[in-house]
Design a protein around this nucleic acid. Structure first.
Lengths: 228, 228, 228, 228
DNA sequence: CATGAATGAGCTTTCATTCAT
DNA sequence: CATGAATGAAAGCTCATTCAT
């Protein structure tokens, strides 16, 4: 009797049900790209759907085909950004070199990434919305910076095992290393006091100092000897 | 019935004459108090002038007598908050104790203050608005956290003079100490991943570790000996 | 897989040729069925083409092949409903029995039908739209309730001829009988004050009283005598 | 400490609390007048706030100061209309005359009023919305037509007491009389089949017939004798 | 000066309709 | 013919700002 069994959604994500993906991933990407530009330029509230419409070159209706509402679009964007920002690809501790060299390579990437124009913008918008969308901000941190630390913890444990480091609270040590690398950079950046990303030299100086400090405290006698 | 404590008018205005625009500091304070509650609760965009009106118990027109517009009110508020948050009163390095003890006292206050509910909220709103009002955010950081470091720099220089510390880049060292103290606390707090302020024990642990690390790197041989 | 029962095409179209616009009565029916469910549930304005699309299991484009626009679809639906609601099939005055018995049978069907859930809904939607689409509403009444009265008028005339009734204005008498049957039911129903259709007992009570009143006034002396 | 104790609403009905009356009853009236014109011309859905804005000569914001939303405005309007339409003032059974004369006076007013242009429009909009706002429609009927019948029931009881009428189910009889009066008028009117209100002669004819029929059935022997 | 009613631009969101596939 | 993604006008509603009192 029934003609088709598919209840495929016309036009839009079901109001009641869960999202049914807008069919064209290219268009979806196009919207997200536009939204990214607008949201990072203006922040959540100041960005209007019309702005995004213009920037993404799609009609207003189309946006609402792919995303249930402004918040939903924002969430999807932040999710995507989080994944692209905190992908592990170049944060590995592979390759040759001493502990210090490895830490330095890691620190350089960490600072360069975390304080880049785009990532600072992303973090600002997330922080801005965190009071109204706490779960989203929480997820952003947990799945982003938080999880980024796991790899370092694993590495530190390996070096402890190898007798190169002596660390009591490994997790906290990982935090300490990150913050040392970002010292004098991250906070000025996020508040806009440092309008441009740090140069590689600036980063190098900060990271070198961080490595030195870190190893001077956590390096085993053997390792400290090597450093000097 | 009448609201104003007319005696508070500065420069002895004639009792019968009109008051000059925005000259009643009590009313101004009243507005800023309400604005503070609303802005820190909701952020700049989500806060409406009506909310502030309600919270401050003044009429809409009155707000526009004292402040040109919403942004202006916000700026004035942030300025006031900055001053109250980063006042030096309890960030001094006075009193007895070793270098470590002094640093610890300083670090404890720094973390407790910077990560308190209200201050986190304030920082979020500033970061949120920093793209649209860069000068304001810049000023907030410069006159706030930035300047807060001056006192520490002075102190570090004194200890260097006294032969207790050996530091190359004093300013960066000051940053490093702050970030070490805040490691694992500030960023989780600002992103809402850590919803409640840290307990004093948590702060103590972090600051102690920071002090240890700092002195292990920057302490003169003499000083390091004392620590151990 | 293929949906259409191609054998149903009228006028034997070539099997390979294209069908002429709006010529597949099965699809048309399918659309009208869906539209009926949606329009009667929500009314004209609150019903969206998408709702109908979903309910009828056809695409949006298809609807616009068979109907010029939403109003056109609605009109077609109302036309169809009018015909099905006011078809004479069971409103006849055939069969045995006295005048009173025949009137009662007629009245019962009239009330049951006019106050059923679906018919009330249909009438509401027509009344709702009558200001914007007056011609449609007019036609609905004229070809529906109005014409439904013809049969009764014919019957009344027959009874007058037979000397059983004495009626001056037959048309008005027909109206009077209908309204008497519906007294205390139709208006409460259409306004939603009586949310459920009347039970058969309720209908019976009302219709009996109507018949009594009608005959007491219009019955010939002979007929009135029989009633008592 | 607190400056004013009044939490008087700025701008608008509290979002969370109950309505605080827009201060200026004249403006409120002005809005309702405009809304009445627009709603009765177009119905609830087709009427836009902008239309009302134009018709009432107030700004959009002002409407939302006095009414929480479109539905709320509509409800207020219907409530007002109900009260003005069904006010008892001229529906009394006072004055001289026989039962028949009194019934006739009542019936004339009833029909004239119920089938007037404006009242038909009002009833249409209420019926139109009854599915989506059932409580409102219910109230409209209950406090309007329903309650309007109370007075008649009281009158009928008085006449029964006086031995002029013999009625079993007084409530139903009241309904019957109303519907008889409206026979051939109300339904054609509400469906727009009769575009203009009935003339007084038409009303007179219908009501006279209704009175005749009513008394012929419910009149005591004595009363029936008088009629003839 | 203080007030708060009034304003209207601008917001997010919906939906009838079109049209390339 | 059937499809459903895309459109954009128009909807309801909010809120910073003004101004007569």
């Amino acid at each position: 009797m029934n003609v088709k069994e598919t209840g495929l959604c016309p036009d839009a994500p079901e109001k009641t049900g869960r999202r049914i993906a807008g069919q064209d991933p290219v268009k979806r990407e196009q919207i997200l790209e536009g939204a990214k530009r607008v949201f990072t330029r203006l922040g959540f509230d100041a960005a209007s759907i019309n702005d995004i419409t213009r920037e993404a070159n799609v009609s207003k209706g189309t946006i609402y085909v792919y995303f249930a509402n402004k918040e939903d679009l924002f969430e999807a964007l932040i999710e995507r950004e989080r994944q692209s920002i905190f992908s592990d690809k170049d944060m590995a501790f592979t390759g040759d070199g001493s502990v210090g060299e490895k830490l330095k390579r890691y620190g350089m990437v960490l600072v360069r990434r975390t304080c880049s124009k785009h990532v600072i913008m992303a973090q600002r918008t997330v922080i801005a919305i965190s009071t109204r969308m706490p779960e989203m901000a929480r997820r952003f941190y947990e799945e982003g910076p938080r999880k980024g630390k796991e790899k370092m913890i694993a590495y530190l444990n390996a070096e402890i095992e190898a007798g190169n480091l002596v660390i009591d609270d490994v997790e906290h040590a990982a935090y300490q290393f990150s913050e040392l690398c970002l010292a004098g950079i991250f906070r000025p950046r996020i508040f806009g006091y440092m309008p441009e990303p740090p140069t590689d030299e600036e980063i190098e100086r900060s990271v070198s100092s961080a490595v030195g400090m870190f190893l001077s405290y956590y390096g085993s006698r053997r390792e400290r000897a090597k450093e000097t």
